[in-house]
């Protein structure tokens, strides 16, 4: 299990990346992240949705409703143009951070510096 703080910090870039691929609804996102991280990252609905709504308010993602098999309509999210730009910046920051860490720890862990 990854520490809570790191999970919280990675929420945004991961979510944007997932939504860049295709439109998804909340439950799908959680499942996907769960699978991707081999169960290391477990988002809860109560964290996910407020963030999604926040992104929606800021115009990074847009939502649309589709009928579901049972119960109320499903809300799908996908990335907007603004969202893509934000994702590009996000990627750069994370890679920069990653480069610093690799430079610091790389030799000792046997990794090549980029």
């Amino acid at each position: 299990m990854l520490p809570k703080e790191l999970v919280a910090a990675s929420l945004r870039p991961i979510m944007l990346t997932l939504l860049e691929e295709r439109a998804m609804y909340g439950y799908q996102i959680i499942q996907r992240v769960h699978d991707l991280s081999d169960g290391q990252i477990k988002w809860t609905a109560s964290k996910l949705y407020p963030l999604l709504h926040d992104l929606e308010n800021k115009g990074l993602v847009e939502a649309f409703w589709q009928p579901s098999e049972a119960g109320p309509d499903r809300k799908y999210y996908r990335l907007t143009r603004v969202g893509r730009e934000a994702l590009a910046r996000e990627k750069r920051s994370w890679l920069d951070l990653n480069a610093i860490l690799v430079r610091l720890w790389g030799p000792e862990l046997g990794l090549q510096t980029a």
Binding site: A70, D73, K75
Partner: peptide, 17 residues
Amino acid sequence: PQDLNELECHLRDHVAE
């Protein structure tokens, strides 16, 4: 209500799975 709908969907998905 619309956010409740979303949460309800989520619950149902989880249960179904």
